[in-house]
Amino acid sequence: MSSYKHLIVAALSIGAISVSSPAALQCAPVPDSITLNPNGKLFSPFTFNHSKHIQSIKECADCHHHTTGTLVLDPNCVRCHQNSSPTAVVSCKGCHSATPFSPETLAAKRADKQRYHLDKMGLKGAMHQNCIGCHTKVGNGPTGCQDCHPRTKEGAAFYSTNRKGAKPAHAEEE
Protein backbone atom coordinates (compact mmCIF):
# COMPACT_ATOMS: atom_id res chain seq x y z
CA MET A 1 0.00 0.00 0.00
CA SER A 2 1.21 3.44 -0.77
CA SER A 3 0.93 4.67 2.77
CA TYR A 4 3.90 2.78 4.17
CA LYS A 5 6.20 5.75 4.17
CA HIS A 6 3.77 7.99 6.02
CA LEU A 7 3.12 5.25 8.46
CA ILE A 8 6.78 4.68 9.12
CA VAL A 9 7.60 8.31 9.65
CA ALA A 10 4.63 8.90 11.91
CA ALA A 11 5.37 5.80 13.91
CA LEU A 12 9.03 6.58 14.34
CA SER A 13 8.42 10.03 15.72
CA ILE A 14 5.99 8.66 18.26
CA GLY A 15 8.05 5.59 18.95
CA ALA A 16 10.92 7.77 20.06
CA ILE A 17 8.79 9.31 22.78
CA SER A 18 6.89 6.32 24.11
CA VAL A 19 9.55 3.68 24.52
CA SER A 20 7.50 0.83 25.86
CA SER A 21 8.12 -2.84 25.44
CA PRO A 22 6.63 -4.04 22.13
CA ALA A 23 3.26 -5.58 22.68
CA ALA A 24 3.91 -8.34 20.17
CA LEU A 25 6.44 -9.86 22.54
CA GLN A 26 3.60 -10.67 24.88
CA CYS A 27 1.70 -12.92 22.46
CA ALA A 28 2.86 -15.33 19.74
CA PRO A 29 6.45 -16.55 19.67
CA VAL A 30 8.48 -13.93 17.83
CA PRO A 31 11.29 -15.23 15.64
CA ASP A 32 14.74 -13.70 16.11
CA SER A 33 15.71 -14.23 12.52
CA ILE A 34 13.93 -15.20 9.34
CA THR A 35 15.25 -16.55 6.06
CA LEU A 36 13.96 -14.38 3.29
CA ASN A 37 13.89 -15.12 -0.42
CA PRO A 38 14.23 -18.84 0.40
CA ASN A 39 13.72 -20.00 -3.19
CA GLY A 40 15.58 -17.14 -4.85
CA LYS A 41 16.91 -17.89 -8.32
CA LEU A 42 18.53 -14.60 -9.32
CA PHE A 43 19.34 -13.48 -5.78
CA SER A 44 20.42 -15.74 -2.93
CA PRO A 45 18.38 -16.42 0.19
CA PHE A 46 19.49 -14.34 3.17
CA THR A 47 18.86 -13.95 6.88
CA PHE A 48 16.76 -11.10 8.16
CA ASN A 49 17.64 -10.03 11.68
CA HIS A 50 14.18 -9.65 13.15
CA SER A 51 15.21 -8.97 16.75
CA LYS A 52 17.49 -6.13 15.71
CA HIS A 53 14.64 -4.51 13.85
CA ILE A 54 12.31 -4.92 16.83
CA GLN A 55 14.87 -3.15 18.98
CA SER A 56 15.39 -0.24 16.65
CA ILE A 57 11.83 0.26 15.39
CA LYS A 58 9.81 -0.68 18.46
CA GLU A 59 6.46 -0.30 16.68
CA CYS A 60 5.22 -3.63 15.32
CA ALA A 61 2.56 -1.83 13.29
CA ASP A 62 5.26 -0.20 11.18
CA CYS A 63 5.66 -3.45 9.31
CA HIS A 64 2.80 -5.62 10.48
CA HIS A 65 -0.02 -3.07 10.17
CA HIS A 66 -2.96 -4.03 12.43
CA THR A 67 -2.16 -7.74 12.64
CA THR A 68 -0.24 -7.71 15.92
CA GLY A 69 -2.96 -5.87 17.78
CA THR A 70 -0.78 -2.87 18.49
CA LEU A 71 -1.86 0.69 17.78
CA VAL A 72 -2.25 1.45 14.09
CA LEU A 73 -1.22 4.96 13.08
CA ASP A 74 -1.99 5.25 9.39
CA PRO A 75 -5.11 7.42 9.16
CA ASN A 76 -6.47 5.31 6.31
CA CYS A 77 -6.10 2.08 8.31
CA VAL A 78 -7.41 3.55 11.54
CA ARG A 79 -10.82 4.04 10.00
CA CYS A 80 -11.46 0.30 10.33
CA HIS A 81 -8.62 -1.09 12.38
CA GLN A 82 -8.53 1.21 15.38
CA ASN A 83 -9.40 -1.58 17.79
CA SER A 84 -8.48 -4.64 15.75
CA SER A 85 -7.34 -7.60 17.80
CA PRO A 86 -4.26 -9.59 16.81
CA THR A 87 -4.77 -11.90 13.86
CA ALA A 88 -3.83 -15.56 13.69
CA VAL A 89 -1.24 -14.92 11.00
CA VAL A 90 1.18 -12.03 11.23
CA SER A 91 3.83 -13.03 8.69
CA CYS A 92 4.06 -11.03 5.45
CA LYS A 93 3.29 -14.02 3.28
CA GLY A 94 0.17 -14.74 5.32
CA CYS A 95 -1.59 -11.84 3.58
CA HIS A 96 0.60 -10.73 0.69
CA SER A 97 0.36 -13.18 -2.18
CA ALA A 98 3.53 -14.44 -3.81
CA THR A 99 1.65 -14.48 -7.12
CA PRO A 100 -0.40 -11.26 -7.06
CA PHE A 101 -0.95 -11.20 -10.83
CA SER A 102 -1.55 -14.85 -11.64
CA PRO A 103 -4.77 -15.59 -13.53
CA GLU A 104 -6.07 -17.38 -10.43
CA THR A 105 -5.42 -14.44 -8.11
CA LEU A 106 -6.94 -11.95 -10.53
CA ALA A 107 -10.02 -14.12 -11.07
CA ALA A 108 -10.54 -14.58 -7.34
CA LYS A 109 -10.26 -10.85 -6.83
CA ARG A 110 -12.81 -10.12 -9.52
CA ALA A 111 -15.23 -12.73 -8.20
CA ASP A 112 -15.14 -11.43 -4.62
CA LYS A 113 -17.42 -8.40 -4.77
CA GLN A 114 -17.17 -7.79 -1.02
CA ARG A 115 -13.42 -7.40 -0.93
CA TYR A 116 -12.19 -4.07 0.37
CA HIS A 117 -8.41 -4.47 -0.04
CA LEU A 118 -8.42 -4.59 -3.83
CA ASP A 119 -5.01 -2.96 -4.11
CA LYS A 120 -3.13 -5.22 -1.71
CA MET A 121 0.46 -5.54 -2.71
CA GLY A 122 2.12 -8.82 -3.56
CA LEU A 123 4.74 -10.30 -1.26
CA LYS A 124 7.77 -9.09 -3.17
CA GLY A 125 6.41 -5.57 -3.59
CA ALA A 126 5.33 -5.32 0.05
CA MET A 127 8.75 -6.33 1.35
CA HIS A 128 10.83 -4.19 -0.98
CA GLN A 129 8.68 -1.12 -0.47
CA ASN A 130 8.69 -1.56 3.27
CA CYS A 131 12.43 -2.21 3.59
CA ILE A 132 13.72 0.23 0.98
CA GLY A 133 11.13 2.84 1.94
CA CYS A 134 12.19 2.84 5.59
CA HIS A 135 15.90 2.49 4.86
CA THR A 136 15.72 5.51 2.57
CA LYS A 137 13.72 7.62 5.00
CA VAL A 138 15.74 6.75 8.06
CA GLY A 139 18.86 6.69 5.96
CA ASN A 140 20.85 4.00 7.72
CA GLY A 141 19.78 0.74 6.13
CA PRO A 142 20.81 -1.01 2.94
CA THR A 143 18.98 0.03 -0.23
CA GLY A 144 21.01 -1.59 -3.03
CA CYS A 145 19.92 -4.95 -4.41
CA GLN A 146 23.07 -6.77 -3.36
CA ASP A 147 23.29 -5.09 0.03
CA CYS A 148 20.67 -7.56 1.21
CA HIS A 149 20.76 -10.44 -1.23
CA PRO A 150 23.86 -11.20 -3.31
CA ARG A 151 23.28 -12.20 -6.89
CA THR A 152 23.54 -15.79 -7.97
CA LYS A 153 25.43 -16.81 -11.09
CA GLU A 154 22.13 -16.91 -12.90
CA GLY A 155 21.37 -13.44 -11.60
CA ALA A 156 24.67 -12.08 -12.89
CA ALA A 157 23.88 -13.43 -16.36
CA PHE A 158 20.35 -12.05 -16.16
CA TYR A 159 21.61 -8.53 -15.51
CA SER A 160 24.36 -8.96 -18.13
CA THR A 161 26.98 -7.93 -15.58
CA ASN A 162 29.80 -8.97 -17.89
CA ARG A 163 28.94 -6.11 -20.22
CA LYS A 164 30.24 -3.29 -18.03
CA GLY A 165 32.60 -0.68 -19.46
CA ALA A 166 31.34 -0.55 -23.03
CA LYS A 167 29.61 2.50 -24.43
CA PRO A 168 26.36 3.51 -22.74
CA ALA A 169 23.63 0.94 -23.22
CA HIS A 170 21.26 1.41 -26.11
CA ALA A 171 23.07 4.61 -27.11
CA GLU A 172 21.02 4.74 -30.27
CA GLU A 173 18.98 7.91 -29.71
CA GLU A 174 16.10 9.52 -31.51
Binding site: Y159, S160, A166, K167, P168, A169, H170, E173, E174
Partner: peptide
Protein backbone atom coordinates in the same frame (compact mmCIF):
# COMPACT_ATOMS: atom_id res chain seq x y z
CA UNK B 1 20.67 -9.01 -28.10
CA UNK B 2 22.95 -8.45 -25.10
CA UNK B 3 22.93 -4.78 -24.05
CA UNK B 4 25.99 -2.61 -24.65
CA UNK B 5 26.54 -2.20 -20.93
CA UNK B 6 25.12 -4.17 -18.05
CA UNK B 7 21.68 -3.50 -16.65
CA UNK B 8 23.38 -2.13 -13.52
CA UNK B 9 25.04 0.68 -15.41
CA UNK B 10 23.59 3.93 -14.00
CA UNK B 11 25.30 6.06 -16.67
CA UNK B 12 22.41 5.31 -19.03
CA UNK B 13 20.30 7.71 -17.00
CA UNK B 14 22.37 10.65 -18.19
CA UNK B 15 20.42 10.76 -21.42
CA UNK B 16 16.76 10.32 -22.22
CA UNK B 17 16.33 7.06 -24.04
CA UNK B 18 13.50 5.78 -26.20
CA UNK B 19 12.61 2.16 -26.96
CA UNK B 20 14.61 0.60 -29.78
CA UNK B 21 14.56 -2.65 -31.70
CA UNK B 22 17.12 -3.95 -29.18
CA UNK B 23 15.36 -2.71 -26.07
CA UNK B 24 11.59 -2.69 -26.13
CA UNK B 25 11.51 -0.91 -22.78
CA UNK B 26 13.80 1.64 -21.16
Amino acid sequence: PEPDTSFDDPSVFEHDRRPTAKAYTV
